[in-house]
């Protein structure tokens, strides 16, 4: 929930971000993208592929520092990231994968609780090669929460999952986020995900990306299937360009 007067965690203003394409031509990925993230908010970057939303996420993660502009943190940054691919260490077990990235204050009790919630209790000694994509994503999500971040970044974390698995994982992220309030940013091109999880949905312009509009999602919008679908249809009728793939 977002409250008036809540502290902001970071202010971002990317004036210009370009990268060199394979053909040597410069592409402008972001132009004058501005946003403020408040503490314990859940923000969604929404837009078609190639609009720079993942680029902005990588800048927030500190993985890309080659841009013009500023990212000002109020507190020291501590990022937990869930990548599009799970990016687990194949040579470490599920338990080791989670604990290697865990915060030093992460207790054994918290670990038991976390793996119970994500449903990995029986899988701790397995290696990633023995897991399905859905289970690997669970490990990646658990790893991000175990790192006790003050900024949780999710880069299309439900992509290429079958619908029921994706729905269960969305529910899982929702549960974890409600239980451990942290500032979260998720990139998606799926309005259902955006409405189900986000409080603020930032609609991106086509490339060069900037933030076109801020859309508030109310609890009533995600109350049931019909309201989610209604919200999706409403956004789609207003901004058809966002749904072009």
């Amino acid at each position: 929930m977002q409250h008036v007067g809540v502290q902001s965690l970071l202010k971002v203003h990317i004036k210009n971000k370009t990268y060199l394409g394979a053909n040597g031509a410069e592409t402008q990925a972001l132009k004058d993208a501005q946003l403020t993230l408040t503490e314990n908010s859940f923000t969604v970057f929404f837009g078609p592929s190639g609009c720079g939303k993942s680029t902005l996420l990588r800048i927030l993660a500190g993985l890309d520092t080659d841009y013009e502009g500023s990212v000002d943190w109020v507190r020291p940054p501590k990022v937990g990231m869930v990548f599009q691919e799970p990016r687990l260490l194949p040579w470490r077990t599920v338990q080791e994968n989670i604990l290697l990235s865990a915060d030093p204050t992460f207790t054994d009790h918290e670990f038991r609780q976390l793996v119970d919630v994500v449903g990995l209790t029986d899988m701790l000694s397995h290696f990633p090669s023995e897991l399905s994509l859905g289970l690997s994503r669970r490990v990646a999500i658990a790893r991000a929460f175990a790192s006790k971040p003050n900024l949780l970044l999710l880069d299309e974390p439900f992509v290429s999952l079958d619908a029921p698995t994706a729905a269960r994982l969305r529910q899982l992220v929702r549960t974890l986020w409600v239980d451990n309030p942290i500032t979260a940013v998720m990139v998606t091109h799926d309005m259902r995900e955006a409405v189900e999880l986000g409080e603020d949905v930032l609609l991106f312009t086509p490339r060069p990306g900037s933030i076109h509009e801020r859309l508030k999602v109310l609890p009533t919008d995600r109350a049931n299937e019909a309201s989610i679908e209604a919200k999706r249809a409403e956004v789609k009728s207003l901004y058809p360009h966002l749904f072009e793939e």
Binding site: A61, L63, F83, R87, P90
Partner: peptide
């Protein structure tokens, strides 16, 4: 490179990166 980036995002130390990501 993706695994190194993962380590970077979680602020792995150089030793951790070498031991858990590069050496294996």
């Amino acid at each position: 490179y993706e695994l190194e980036e993962m380590g970077q995002s979680f602020r792995y130390t150089r030793l951790q990166t070498f031991q858990h990501i590069i050496l294996p």
